[in-house]
Design a protein around this nucleic acid. Structure first.
Length: 595
RNA sequence: CGGGGUGUAGCUCAGCUUGGCAGAGCGCUUCGUUCGGGACGAAGAGGUCCGCGGUUCAAAUCCGCGCACCCCGACCA
């Protein structure tokens, strides 16, 4: 590609919409352009990176035995009714009508479509196992798109779906995808950590996310400093700090004016936060039945309620915080709320931390008063007792505790790059999918699904590989292999001929070359080369041509070196090899947990 | 959906308080001089001041109603 013909210009200043270095460089370099909130154009450079990422994904999926298909993005809405997800997805599902008023949806994911496809074509257990995948545009009407390419409304996703006869088969299919994901992220230069995750509305039993740890991430990830345990905070198990024990004492009311927070309450009474109980109230809508009911959640004062865990403890529900009028209507006094003497219509959920925590301070449900020596079981009852609290940095690691070690957790921010799910029989049973088994009966297949955000990989690779001057793409996903910079070619016909010849040679060797043939000053070209971040830069100039040499510099190297003209191709290949080695699974995973 | 912010040239922004010729830097075009880390000079092109309505002799500026985008939160497969 001759740069003089390339569409788009580099920018000297970062557009105001960019809030991270990688995002700013992608815009300044002319890789991407925003059309509206959550919708981006991939310009020629960005499109090339995207295509290369897709190529890596495709190679690894094929190598893992998955078969590529393309399913329609536009789908009948009734298909979503079969699994109850039209309602479950809510406003996130883009819906429209065709000219005959038939209700349609733009696919946010394809479990329904692929299950229907499988059902139409698989008839026997001999058709199992099978894994299908596609690389396709997905649509989700996100409440708030943000973070450049991180959360968008239209995006390219690789989604794969496996069908197996039994759990052992699913384990094999799931494991193959898991290993393929490790290689994909490594080859794309994105360090990721696999973490235990909540399965969310997609359902199933158990899932893992591949997380790129970064301060700009939307998710909180809990990691053990001793073992390899890692989990999304929505899922993370932890050892609760010990309660302060003593025999149950009689309940007693105390005046505690102006103490509407746990912190203020503990300070006022001279007790620790773990000697108090904290209450939070929600309105819940049961996913399965649509039933709406009020929830009164209680955790020990040193912990916080985790809404995802709470929703799971309720058997799958949508939660929102109660508004003031609802709080009043249920007879709750905010700031002094008490699980003692609650109305019957409130569903009380208690965290595990309250089970052996005697004599806590809880609200009196009367402004300015609290109760001392409140005990679960004696003074109040919970409809559900479970893990509804968030793990925090400093808490004990549950896995270490179970294995007799003393590990502690830390918290970091991260972005979900991929997610692998054991769907189990969720979709096949809801959609009545069976195949014939070996004995002439019918069996319901078990499923897995596996997603990767292509645009997120691009964004994360940019974020993970840049410096003050610009991007520094990992070898396999770079838009070009070589950035050939010509200096003063308009004034030196010999050097110009040399550059043209080198461009042809490199291209003939199968390398993608970006040739800066523009009539610009050297400084402009070098700065643009640094900004665009092609892994290898070659410089041809009168000086070099006269010396029978070319200057070569890896984007990540500090200095350029002079290479004899005859050795250039071999040198480029060796730089490329080094670049590939830097993105081996071992090299990338060593960086992943960082710190 | 709640809270906050912004909207003026391709980009970054000033001008708005106190109404009176539409501005700067960068980028772009042409010419000249330059030419190995974002050169210099000269001459140019480029505007729905987010939209609609109102106040006024006069609105980028004041008022009202919208819209869009960004950030925080809620939400998020």
């Amino acid at each position: 590609m001759r740069m003089s013909r390339m569409f788009g210009h580099t920018l000297r200043e970062a557009p105001s919409e960019a809030d991270t270095p990688g995002h700013a460089f992608l815009i300044r370099g002319g890789y991407i352009d925003q059309l509206m909130a959550g919708a981006y154009t991939f310009m020629p450079l960005g499109h090339r990176v995207k295509r290369r990422i897709e190529q890596v994904v495709r190679e690894e999926m094929d190598a893992a035995g998955a078969q590529e298909v393309t399913m329609p993005a536009i789908q009948p809405a009734e298909l979503w009714d079969q699994t109850g997800r039209r309602a479950g997805m809510g406003a996130t599902l883009f819906q429209l009508r065709d000219r005959r008023e038939r209700e349609l949806a733009l696919g946010p994911t394809h479990e329904e479509v692929v299950t229907r496809l499988f059902s139409d074509h698989a008839v026997s257990y001999r058709d199992l196992p099978v894994t299908l995948y596609q690389i396709q545009t997905k649509f989700r009407d996100e409440a708030r798109p943000r973070g450049g390419l991180i959360r968008v409304r239209e995006f390219t996703m690789k989604d794969a779906y496996s069908f197996d006869a039994d759990d052992a088969g699913l384990d094999v299919s799931y494991g193959a995808m898991f290993e393929a994901y490790r290689r994909i992220f490594a080859r794309c230069g994105v360090p990721t950590v696999p973490v235990q995750a909540d399965s969310g509305a997609i359902g199933g039993k158990g899932s893992q996310e591949f997380i790129f740890l970064t301060d700009i991430g939307e998710d909180t990830i809990i990691l053990c400093d001793t073992c390899t345990y890692a989990a999304n905070q929505e899922k993370a198990e932890f050892v609760r700090p010990a309660a302060i024990g003593s025999d149950a004492l009689p309940i007693e009311e105390v005046a505690t004016p102006g103490t509407t927070s746990i912190e203020a309450l503990a300070a006022f009474l001279g007790v620790e936060e773990r000697q108090t109980a904290k209450a939070v109230f929600f309105m819940a809508k049961q996913n399965a039945t649509g039933e709406t009911f009020p929830v009164f959640a209680v955790v020990r004062g040193d912990l916080d309620v985790n809404e995802v865990k709470l929703a799971n403890a309720l058997g799958g529900a949508e939660l929102r915080a109660m508004v003031d009028s609802e709080i009043a209507a249920y007879g709750i006094v905010a700031g002094y709320a008490s699980p003692v003497g609650l109305r019957d219509d409130l569903r009380v959920v208690a965290d595990l931390s309250l089970r052996d925590a005697p004599n806590l301070v809880a609200g009196a449900n009367k402004a300015g008063f609290h109760l001392r020596n409140v005990n679960l079981g004696r003074d109040w009852q919970a409809a559900v007792t479970g893990d509804i609290a968030s793990a925090q940095a400093g808490h004990g690691c549950a896995r270490c505790a179970a294995e007799g070690r003393d590990g502690h957790l830390r918290a970091e921010r991260g972005i979900e790059m991929g997610h692998v799910f054991r769907l189990d029989y969720t979709y096949t049973s809801k959609m009545n999918v069976t195949v014939q088994d070996a004995s002439g009966g019918q069996l319901t297949p078990t499923m897995g699904c596996y997603g990767i955000g292509v645009g997120r990989i691009l964004a994360a690779a940019a974020e993970a590989h840049c410096d003050e001057a610009g991007l520094a793409w990992p070898t396999e996903v770079a838009p070009y292999d070589v950035h050939l910079v010509g200096i003063g070619l308009d004034r030196d016909a010999e050097a110009a001929a040399d550059a043209d010849a080198l461009y042809a040679e490199l291209t003939a060797a199968g390398l993608d070359v970006l040739f800066d043939d523009r009539d610009e000053r050297p400084g402009v070209k070098f700065n643009d080369a640094d900004l665009l971040g092609v892994p290898v830069r070659l410089t041809v100039s009168s000086r070099n041509t006269k010396a029978g040499a070319v200057e070569a510099k890896a984007r990540t190297a500090a200095e350029a070196e002079s290479i004899a003209r005859a050795d250039v191709l071999a040198h480029v290949q060796s730089l490329r090899e080094a670049g590939l080695a830097a993105c081996s699974v071992e090299a990338i995973e060593r960086q992943a947990r960082g710190h």
